[in-house]
Design a protein around this nucleic acid. Sequence first.
DNA 1: CCCGACTCTGACAACGTTGTCCAGGCTCTA
DNA 2: TAGAGCCTGGACAACGTTGTCAGAGTCGGG
Lengths: 374, 374
Amino acid sequence: MLDATSSYNPTAPRIPVDDRTGQDTVPETPRRTDRPSGTRYGSRPTMKDVAARAGVGLKTVSRVVNGEPGVTPETERRVQEAIEALGFRRNDSARVLRKGRTASIGLVLEDLADPFYGPLSRAVEEVARAHGALLINGSSAEDPDREQELVLALCARRVDGLVVIPAGDDHRYLEPELKAGVATVFVDRPAGKIDADVVVSDNYGGARDGVAHLIAHGHRRIGFIGDMPRIHTAAERLRGYRTAMEDAGIPVADSWMSLGVTDPERVRRAAGEMLSGPDPVTAIFTGNNRVTVTVIRVLAEHTRRVALVGFDDIELADLLQPGVTVVAQDAAALGRTAAERLFRQLDGTLLRPERVELPTRLITRGSGELPPAD
Amino acid sequence: MLDATSSYNPTAPRIPVDDRTGQDTVPETPRRTDRPSGTRYGSRPTMKDVAARAGVGLKTVSRVVNGEPGVTPETERRVQEAIEALGFRRNDSARVLRKGRTASIGLVLEDLADPFYGPLSRAVEEVARAHGALLINGSSAEDPDREQELVLALCARRVDGLVVIPAGDDHRYLEPELKAGVATVFVDRPAGKIDADVVVSDNYGGARDGVAHLIAHGHRRIGFIGDMPRIHTAAERLRGYRTAMEDAGIPVADSWMSLGVTDPERVRRAAGEMLSGPDPVTAIFTGNNRVTVTVIRVLAEHTRRVALVGFDDIELADLLQPGVTVVAQDAAALGRTAAERLFRQLDGTLLRPERVELPTRLITRGSGELPPAD
DNA sequence: CCCGACTCTGACAACGTTGTCCAGGCTCTA
DNA sequence: TAGAGCCTGGACAACGTTGTCAGAGTCGGG
């Protein structure tokens, strides 16, 4: 993936414009088109250039650009004209340096390509937009080091706030940032070893209800396939499973529980073992959308009818035969709630970290209502 | 959505630190925790602070932070210690201002929550990451004004490059940016009225093949339901449909084609009319993933068996009864290709704008192979 | 006709970082 | 032991913008 031959180097020093004017060092053809006169190639016009062209002072340009009062219409017209002619665009880096706020927030999540995180990200973006801020996304790929790297890169850019879906379980590295006033909200999973705002779904209760639903339909031998146990949501959902089983007085066999990475191979193997062992399950509870999809495939190839309830809703789940019963969480609501809390921190209307838990919803569609087929 | 009560105002002037030191204007409780001494509340430590604490010069701190040579291990240790103690984090805004490159690129797409764009965005991010750049996402919601607003906001932040999935059809507003050296690649749809790099799928050919597939299975009355005709991909796919029909010598009835917004109500109505009119279709070709999903729902409620081929692959399409035959495009490849071209522009290894077309793939799963049921 | 009030404009410093350049101390060699 | 050369460190300017403040110009009233 890394392209060693690339000469794009964002950290290389900027070549002084004067160094390029010599006849013998003239660069090859300028890229694409000519520039309006008054602009040096590769460097953009500044307010100074605009001021010179319009024959006004620097600050007057600033006033026009920012819509501040105290500029005669005639002067404003001249400035606008110069802006237009030069293609001037304010440099927000300089602005940020001066003003201290960047009007941008960061979102670190696991994988933007996952259908759970897309809507979450979009919801955060909408709230940010309503507050005039841009959103910078980053995917941690479930790697704590990459999470930290991303978060610190965002802090270096001085985002006003951070929404983090943590991959790691130790966020003490964020302490200086919190102290410096970077608003921070953790979503989907709690922060580790620091006191911070958290917005999560009721993973425990949702899983418990989902498993109880299977039990209510006569199942006793119920399998659980989930994500790696170090991931908080996976652990909580497992806890919900255990509680439901315990409440029903059903002892759980070790072979009924499988936690690990959610790639299809591992999940297939896990499902296969549960379904074919000496004590085969009659129902499976799946720990997230990826696992559910794989298990649906396994069951489709399977002759015996096996009941299924999955955590997370999935598209088209209602059109399968049977429809897939799920414990749905509202990804957009998670994102929206988190972002709104973030901006309330920035407002100053939210002073103390809290933990917010959003409910889940059991959606019955058939697969969870299949009776045990022993 | 807009929160008028919010006092978060990214454009408000920064309160000078000195103004806060008066006893009578002391702010309420500092947020959350105390700060390490040497740092003023709300303003972060700078290299100057670090230098003072470590008892070295400003530039020495800069050298340490950037891993430049010419610092004794002992001095470096002292600096690192000061950085640690103060929680210093380099301010990239200032850095960018000095260096000229931001090591960030922008991606403007329609909707991050759409399962087509999530993977595309992720692919762009991965390429950016390989080049040491961050990605800023923005959703245009298919609104040309919002697209322009986003693009210009990104340019004001001086992103090094832009990947744009255009909503509008006039991008002359980008001319000053292109001239200033902002690398730009359009994806999924071509740029309007400017000469720029473009990466698209073979929408025309894919649709033609998909419709030809239906014709090969005996269909003659085939409907087309697509997105708004002003969207380039929709127009191209319609063109593919027309060509396939024409090649087979089949005259197309107006009532067989429906283009418009892709919300479920409109699509449902369109499908209903095609299926129930005086000249009902025996097969439908759907113009994108959202339309396909809605039509699948309509057909599931329908008694007569209707063949279906959809543009864009959809998850679980293989598990439906019948499986959904689709013309698949590779969203990740689109994003990857576009991003790679972007960085080649920044490299200087890509000098002239080109149009790259990626192939589509017909995936047969059953729904497209149903015979006409008149 | 002069003065004060008001409006509009511009010079200047500061934001935090990096590149340039020079000074001082050190080592090494003759 | 003196001189050359290297290594380390620091002073300073510049990046492009905005806030402060003061000056120039205009207008009306006394």
